[in-house]
């Protein structure tokens, strides 16, 4: 089994997780899905397992950024509504 195939489940999982998180994206799900798809498409030609792993790491980072974005957006909204 090539390295690419071995990493495929991880990539699919990442894509699914990102799409799931993208449902709450401020500019809408469609906006997020289109961009997410474009980025994955752009990297679909990678064959070097190192490069693929780096791309997965970047994806994990984006996931954390999304979590932080949602948290911060909600936190600021609550703060504005109740404390300021």
């Amino acid at each position: 089994m090539s390295a690419k195939q071995a990493l495929k489940p991880q990539v699919t999982q990442l894509y699914k997780e990102l799409l799931w998180m993208g449902r709450d994206y401020p500019q809408g799900y469609k906006y997020f899905r289109d961009r997410c798809h474009k980025v994955f498409k752009a990297k679909s030609g990678l064959t070097d397992p190192k490069e693929i792993e780096n791309a997965i790491k970047l994806g994990e980072y984006v996931k954390k950024e999304l979590e932080a974005l949602y948290f911060l957006k909600r936190y600021r909204a609550m703060k504005r509504a109740y404390y300021d």
Partner: peptide, 9 residues
């Protein structure tokens, strides 16, 4: 860099 900006929330 939003997770790093949580320090200014």
């Amino acid at each position: 860099a939003i997770q790093h900006l949580a320090g200014m929330k």
